[in-house]
Nucleic acid binder design. Structure first.
Length: 332
DNA sequence: CTCCTGTGAA
DNA sequence: TTCACAGGAG
């Protein structure tokens, strides 16, 4: 159970680390520069207050960021500090939650309970080591270690790392579904939680969790979404990205394909919509915008797409052109 | 591991 | 009306 088992690796000898690009530093710099150059601004990116960060994270788990913004401001307006929240009536907190359509009102209960834990000093290293008296103890200070934050009700690994990172610049690499998608596409990391954790951790520059986790989430949010926008978003990882190279933008979390999905009519609509935003697109660039499970050589791949666009061309809506060995599509 | 939650999209 | 979502609890 020591580190000796590191040598007793699996027979193949290729671990998740083999997914890492050779020039990790260049990869890191590219992402951080891209993020710092321009990113969405959210009010919780302007604070390092752990309580405020925690509230934003809990709200973000279930609600689109746009609506979270309003709710977050009003929540903090009503309960500005962790002490205020701890002293609140549970019913008021839950009432606020439902009143703002924040979903899962259990999360409101958890948040309220977490506030009490902090105020009572029920978490952290100074988990009342000396008999500090029953009434004192907690000073309302949040612990700064992810493992201690995770003791808070409603705070799991994800939220713990997010708070540790954004409040204290003291987190590990955040691994959520967006990060998984990015790593899966960019570095061909296998769809395996352990692999994601290892690669995410190895990529993150030491002691830079705040900017790094912000940048990774930004990347997944505005460039490497389910339907990717590599060029539109100026993705900083295009030169290393496995998916960008192969045109296979499948993601670990997208195999769901409801009945109404996949109809030819819907696919035609997507082609037209995608093309209307561009003068022209190579088939392999158009593909992922039409089907998230597009792979050039897959069942719904390049030839499938070529036929689809050819149909549109037959209807006088689009046209195909061969150029330098690749096919581009455009509207007519 | 299974289950759960409220919302919005299909 | 069903169901995906996305974390966390138990």
């Amino acid at each position: 159970m020591s580190d000796a088992d590191a040598t007793a690796d699996e027979g193949g000898g290729d671990g998740p680390r083999d997914c890492l690009p050779a020039d990790v530093d260049a990869v890191r710099d590219a992402l951080v520069s891209w993020y710092e150059d321009d990113h969405r601004s959210f009010p919780w990116r302007e604070t390092t207050d752990a309580y405020e960060i925690l509230v934003s994270e809990v709200m973000s788990q279930q609600t689109q960021l746009e609506r979270v913004e309003t709710a977050w401001r009003e929540f903090l307006d009503r309960w500005p500090t962790v002490h205020d929240l701890a002293a609140a009536e549970r019913g008021d907190v839950v009432g606020f939650w439902t009143g703002h359509s924040l979903g899962y009102n259990n999360r409101a209960r958890y948040l309220h309970e977490a506030a009490r834990q902090v105020v009572e000093g029920a978490v952290g290293p100074s988990d009342r080591p000396h008999g500090a008296g029953e009434t004192g103890g907690g000073d309302g200070e949040f612990p700064e270690e992810p493992a201690e934050l995770a003791e808070l009700m409603g705070v799991g690994p994800y939220t713990a790392n997010a708070v540790a990172s954004f409040a204290f610049n003291n987190g590990n690499a955040v691994v959520d579904t967006n990060v998984k998608r990015v790593l899966y596409r960019a570095f061909d990391v296998p769809d395996d939680d352990e692999a994601f954790a290892v690669v995410a951790g190895a990529l993150m520059p030491d002691g830079e969790s705040r900017v790094w986790n912000n940048a990774m989430m930004e990347l997944g949010g505005v460039a490497c979404e389910k339907v990717p926008s590599c060029d539109e978003a100026g993705c900083p990882w295009r030169r290393w990205c496995h998916a960008y190279e192969t045109g296979d933008f499948t993601a670990p979390d997208v195999p769901t394909q409801p009945e109404f999905e996949g109809s030819r009519r819907q696919m035609r609509g997507r082609v037209v919509k995608a093309l209307s935003n561009h003068d022209e697109l190579p088939l392999d660039t158009l593909g992922p915008k039409v089907r998230v499970d597009y792979t050039p050589d897959g069942e719904h791949g390049r030839e499938w797409l070529r036929a689809l666009v050819a149909d549109l061309a037959g209807d006088g809506l689009a046209e195909l052109e061969e150029r330098d060995g690749e096919t581009v599509a455009r509207l007519r």
